[in-house]
Design a protein around this nucleic acid. Structure first.
Lengths: 273, 273
DNA sequence: TAAATAGTGTCTATAAGACATTATCTC
DNA sequence: GAGATAATGTCTTATAGACACTATTTA
C-alpha cells in the first residue's frame, strides 16, 4: 500500500488529463517536493519487423561503445521525462514513435507500433538500472528502402529472426529475449489482419499475404485453405482488387490492397501504450 | 540510436546474467559514472482479481493522502532500484510479488501473477513523472478471507469490476484504464485454463468453473457445451475428480480439482516480466 | 507443348452453439 | 411427489486441414 510516495514536491501541472482537483489538493501540490532517492533510467526499445527475401527480419544496430561493444542491439533510447515541474516530458508511445523516426526516418503514421511490455531485470544493463519498454514496429517492405536515410551514423541491418538464435549473432543486453517476446506478440495478433496489413506492400497477391502469415506463425499454410479465409476478407470489404497483375515466371496473380477500414497505426490514440 | 547512455559510471556488477565481458569492457565499466539527468519514478501496480458473490472483483485501496485523496486506487509501490552500484535492486516481477505480499499477506506462489504492460502517460501523476508497470494477480476466492491480515492500515475492499464505470467510484490516476486493460488481458488468456485455475477454489464443480469463464468473457455459456470442453480437460488429466460432492438446494454436483501439471504461478521463472 | 503457379472444388474431422432429455438429489 | 439442478445426448452449422483438380500464363 505504498501508493503514497512519501515525498514533497513543487506542483507539476498535470498535462491534458482534465480532472477536478479540489483547492485542498491544489494546495498540497503546491507544497509538494519530490525527495530524491534512486530512480531507474527508462528507455524504449523498438523491435522493428519487416519481411525481406521471404524472411522475417528485425532491424538491429551495431553498438559502437561499451558495454556490448560490437554486439547487435535493438534501436532505442531514453524516454524524455522533462524537468518534472512544468513539463513531465513525452508519453511512452510518443517516445517510441520519436525513436522510430530518428532511427528509420519513417513517419510513425506509416508504421504499426504497439507495446510489448516492460523489461527490467536487475543487471540487464551492467552500468546501471535500466527499465525498458519494448515496442513492436511493423514496417511494410516497400518502405524498407527508405529506412536508412535519416538514421544515426551507426550501422543498421535487417537480420533474419530465424538466424539469431544459438549465438550466431551476439545480441546486447537482454535483447534476444525481447525479440523473442516481440515475435510471439506479433504472431499472436496476426489474425486480426491489421498486423498482416503492415507487413505486405501496398499491393500484394494472395500468395504474398499467405507467406506473411506463414512466416509469422512458423507453419506451412495450404494455398487453397488460405484463399478461403481471404475470400472472407474480400466479402467484408477489408481488401479489394487493385489494378494490374503480378507477373511471375508462370501464370500472373491478381493483385489486392487493404482498404482504409481501421487505421494501420494505433499510435496516436493510445498514449498509455 | 540513442542506445548509448552518454554517461560515465562506477561499475555496477551485473547480477546473475552470466556473460563474458572482455577486459576492455571491464575497464570501461570501472570508469563509468552515470550522469544525472531527469529520471522517472517507476512503480508496480497490482490489479488483483477474484470472484466473490458471483462477481468479478478487483482489490482497491482508499487513498488517505493527496493527490486523489479519498479516491480508490490500485495497490502498488515503487520498484526498489538499489544504490546503482553493488546492487541494482529487485526485478520487476519481484517488486510485484513483494507488493502483493505486503498488501495481501498472500504468498506469491499461491497467486498467478502476470505483467499487463507499462503505463506512462505524462501527467498521470500530478506530482511528478511516474511510469508504472501493471500486473494482474489472480486470487483464488478461498484465499480471499486471508487477504486483509497483513496489509497496511489503509482500507482495502474488493469492488465489482462491473460497477466501476460511469463514475460510480472515483478512481485515482489512470487506474480505471489500467483495470480495463488488465481485465481484457485476463479475458484474452482464459482459454489456457491456467487462468481459470487461479480463480476457482481448490475444489470446484463444473458449474462453478463455467461461471468463472462466463464472468471473464462477459457472455452466457451453455452448461452442456461447457461440459464438453470440461471433459477434454478430464481426458488430458488437467483436472480430476475430488472427494465429496457440493451440496445444493437440489441435486448435488460432483467436485473436481486441478492437477499440478503446469505451475499456478509463472512468477519465479520470468523475472523480466 | 511442357512447366509452373494461380485459382477452384471436395471430402472429412473437429468444435461450437442451440436445445431436448434424463438422472438424482432436497424439501 | 414437486421442484430444481446436474448430467447427458443430439442436431446443425462453421471452420480448418488435406488434397485433387482445372485454368492460364511463360518459356
Amino acid at each position: 500500500m505504498n501508493r503514497d510516495r512519501k515525498r514533497p514536491s513543487p506542483a507539476p501541472p498535470r498535462k491534458s488529463t482534465a480532472r477536478s482537483a479540489g483547492p485542498d489538493e491544489a494546495a498540497f501540490l503546491a507544497r509538494y517536493r519530490p525527495g530524491d532517492f534512486a530512480r531507474p533510467s527508462v528507455t524504449v526499445d523498438i523491435v522493428a519487423f519487416s519481411i525481406l527475401d521471404g524472411e522475417l527480419r528485425v532491424l538491429l544496430v551495431r553498438r559502437g561503445e561499451h558495454p556490448f561493444k560490437g554486439a547487435w542491439a535493438l534501436p532505442g533510447g531514453f524516454v524524455r521525462v522533462g524537468d518534472g515541474h512544468k513539463d513531465q516530458g513525452e508519453d511512452l508511445a510518443a517516445a517510441a514513435a520519436r525513436e522510430l523516426q530518428e532511427e528509420t526516418s519513417l513517419h510513425p503514421n506509416d508504421v504499426f507500433l504497439e507495446q510489448v511490455g516492460a523489461f527490467g531485470r536487475a543487471g540487464r544493463d551492467p552500468r546501471m538500472r535500466v527499465i525498458t519498454v519494448a515496442y513492436t514496429a511493423l514496417i511494410r517492405p516497400d518502405l524498407v528502402p527508405l529506412v536508412h536515410a535519416g538514421g544515426d551514423a551507426a550501422v543498421a541491418e535487417w537480420h533474419a529472426v530465424d538466424r539469431l538464435g544459438h549465438g550466431q549473432l551476439e545480441l546486447a543486453f537482454d535483447h534476444a529475449e525481447i525479440i523473442e517476446r516481440a515475435t510471439a506478440h506479433v504472431a499472436a495478433r496476426i489474425d486480426g489482419s491489421s498486423i498482416a496489413r503492415s507487413l505486405v506492400p501496398k499491393t500484394f497477391t494472395i500468395q504474398e499475404l499467405r507467406q506473411v502469415h506463414a512466416l509469422l506463425l512458423g507453419t506451412h499454410l495450404d494455398p487453397g485453405n488460405f484463399r478461403r479465409k481471404f475470400e472472407r476478407l474480400l466479402e467484408d470489404g477489408v481488401v479489394v482488387r487493385a489494378a494490374g497483375k503480378r507477373l511471375t515466371a508462370s501464370k500472373p496473380a491478381l493483385v489486392y490492397r487493404f482498404t482504409d477500414t481501421g487505421a494501420p497505426s494505433p499510435n496516436a490514440a493510445k498514449d498509455t501504450l
